[in-house]
Design a protein around this nucleic acid. Structure first.
Lengths: 200, 200
DNA sequence: TGAATAATAGACCAGTCTATATATTTTATG
DNA sequence: CATAAAATATATAGACTGGTCTATTATTCA
């Protein structure tokens, strides 16, 4: 069970934050625990105290944090923006900011873990799947606000998440926001299409 | 310069094939060269003989092969299928076959490398970018066959590739083809939209 | 304050990592 | 056949890996 003491909590959080930051740069297998320790300033004993299952458990916590952060982005964009296009613009602006601020290094922790560890580490694979589900659900909820039935919304929401993840990867490979910009255009097209479909 | 002798060529190819297969399972950093050697049956001296720049060079060759294989899939679908929807169906059927045959382990080598090694290894990042460019170009060429201008086609083609890559990742995380199926529906929607746009 | 628990600290371990080195074998060709 | 180049084969090296272990310190709470 997780600690409830403030100082331990802070150490634990630094470990998760560091793991998340490094996974984005090097992937799961490319992130060595010693670099996590160096970055977080936590002692090795603390790592195994807080995460007795080791690297996997820390990886799961990092994926969970990434999931929460992106869900927060989706939630913020969908509650404050005034139109589907504005939602896309808000979200893409945030993602762009993240990409540019990090010289295209940041942005895709969950997919990174899914690809790196998803074939031989079932708990990690499931953690990624759950995060994706949460993101898709958030988009479905938004699409429901203009009357789209869940069954209709689900595949489109899934595609939107796929599109965003894919575009972040291509943006990284190209060191350019062009793929993300292209995805923004396509997301708007999809929003428009489902909006029409919901009105019909 | 690469060898032109048949026996050496075969060894070299086995190394690339093996690297590609293992990257799909474990990512770039999670693939150790000793496992590549074990899988290919090649001796270590041969690895460095054929790839004097080491792991990076082998990784680039593997990415190139993956790029060629997927470009072949795109080419085949776009030349044999009778309609945009049939193109999508053909491509998705192939990808589905790959996913299912491999228990969702195979399918995303280029994105795997882009995420794993794209931040610290410039030659690998560029190799991934070039493969993505080739794929986007192949889709642009197809979209041009129904009259879409290149400038119009480029962002949509980019999004299509992003969508497919993303959907393969989500399919892996879910151990289900549902994300790929969802992407297929969305690809058809996009095909329809650009088809209308080209006719207008 | 004292006791129990939480957390830290860092040494140690066996295994794996990528790459180097060098001797040997194989291949190609005149 | 002889020679040069290609390719193979395997031992070696230092660095890094995730995890274990145990002593010590810090924190919590009655």
């Amino acid at each position: 069970m997780a600690s409830s003491y403030p100082k331990g909590l802070a150490t634990r959080q630094r470990l998760i934050d560091s793991m998340l930051a490094l996974i984005q740069l090097h992937g799961y297998h490319g992130t060595g625990l010693n670099t996590v320790l160096a970055r977080s300033g936590a002692p090795k004993g603390s790592l195994y105290f807080h995460f007795p299952e080791g690297k996997t458990e820390l990886g799961i916590a990092a994926v969970g944090l990434a999931g929460d952060q992106f869900a927060e982005l989706i939630g913020s964009a969908t509650t404050t923006a005034s139109s589907p296009n504005a939602v896309v613009d808000a979200l893409v602006a945030e993602l762009k900011g993240i990409l540019e601020a990090s010289d295209y290094q940041a942005g895709c922790p969950v997919s990174s873990v899914a690809l790196d560890a998803g074939s031989g580490n079932e708990p990690l694979r499931e953690a990624c799947g759950q995060v994706y589900d949460a993101w898709v659900s958030a988009v479905v909820s938004y699409l429901a606000t203009f009357g789209l039935e869940k069954e209709q919304a689900q595949p489109v929401a899934t595609s939107m998440i796929c599109l965003v993840e894919g575009s972040l990867i291509l943006s990284r490979a190209h060191k350019s926001t062009q793929p993300l910009d292209a995805a923004a255009g396509t997301l708007k097209m999809l929003m428009k299409a489902v909006h029409s479909e919901a009105s019909a």
